[in-house]
């Protein structure tokens, strides 16, 4: 075992912990920090369930080592809602449009869409489908996810104009 101490920021909060160098970032978040909202669906970088934002960009947390996130600013599903508990417009849109069923792939899809909507405030449905093409959902057939993303985009644009 070769342990390393790791300090990083997750959802605006500083964490420090130790992990064996081979521990994936996903496992460190889940079992080291107890942030179990990030899920593992394949552990070989295809399903996208473990997608998080690392220093502002989406990444598969199963394809990163925890030690690589040393000093990084990480955002996970647990950090989406407002501090007062209100859901983020993207989360609300998922609820409104039935964009989730079992909810297992959902964290990765939400984090992917956070990046898309930040970069591209007015995406087309095709843009949304392209953005989530690296996220597998077995439940929804994706249509409700696309609808939720479009609603969220519209809602966030309103917020920007206001």
């Amino acid at each position: 075992m070769s342990e390393r101490s790791i300090e990083l920021t997750v959802n605006g909060r500083s964490y420090s912990g130790t992990a064996d160098v081979r521990t994936t970032l996903a496992d460190f978040l889940r079992h080291g920090l107890g942030l179990t909202g990030t899920h593992l669906g394949c552990e070989h970088g295809v399903c996208g369930a473990c997608t998080i934002l690392v220093d502002g960009v989406s990444a598969r947390s199963c394809l990163m080592l925890a030690v690589q996130a040393e000093g990084s600013d990480v955002r996970t599903i647990e950090g989406l809602a407002e501090p007062n508990g209100d859901l983020h417009p993207l989360q609300t849109a998922f609820r409104d449009n039935h964009g989730l069923q079992c909810g297992f792939c959902t964290p990765g899809i939400l984090m992917t869409l956070m990046e898309l909507l930040d970069e591209q405030p007015d995406p087309t449905e095709a843009d949304v489908r392209d953005a989530i093409s690296g996220n597998i959902c077995r439940c929804t057939g994706y249509q409700s996810i696309v609808a939720a993303a479009m609603q969220a985009a519209a809602e966030l644009r309103k917020g920007r104009r206001a």
Partner: peptide, 21 residues
Amino acid sequence: KHRIEDPALLRGNGRFVDDIA
């Protein structure tokens, strides 16, 4: 109707078997 399951799942507060310590 909105699903009663959703708020926890959307916040990352679901409890799947591997989430239980």
